[in-house]
């Protein structure tokens, strides 16, 4: 574990961190970054908003990609199209999401 100090830690698919343990994990990351010379890279196509949580509040963060929205639209490989006539409205299919 002492080999974590002064290292670059890449967390890939960071949205998959176990939710129940998110608080201690983020807190640990923050401590390593502030006090023990660590750089952390959070990598995910679906970035969770850790910054809404207390552990990460006020923690500065740099986005690696200059223009993420443009990149997402450039890389779009699937297009959706209604092939029904008349086109259905989304409201018709609305169901309660949870009970």
């Amino acid at each position: 574990m002492h080999r974590l100090a002064h290292s670059v830690i890449v967390l890939d698919e960071v949205q998959a961190l176990p939710h129940a343990m998110l608080a201690p994990i983020l807190d640990g990351i923050r401590l390593l970054v502030f006090h023990f010379g660590v750089t952390v890279l959070l990598s995910s196509a679906t970035q969770p908003s850790f910054w809404a949580l207390n552990e990460f509040k006020d923690l500065p963060c740099t986005d690696l990609i200059h223009d993420t929205p443009k990149l997402v639209s450039d890389l779009r490989r699937v297009r959706y199209e209604w092939q029904l006539d008349p086109k259905p409205a989304l409201g018709q299919y609305r169901r309660p999401g949870c009970v």
Partner: peptide, 26 residues
């Protein structure tokens, strides 16, 4: 040093890009 975020969509080459970033940063 600090916290960085790579929010590229699937297929954008995240594995290589994060490897390159980490090596260069180190």
């Amino acid at each position: 040093r600090g916290v960085f975020r790579l929010g590229a969509p699937t297929g954008a080459g995240k594995t290589l890009a994060s490897g390159g970033f980490a090596l260069r940063h180190a």
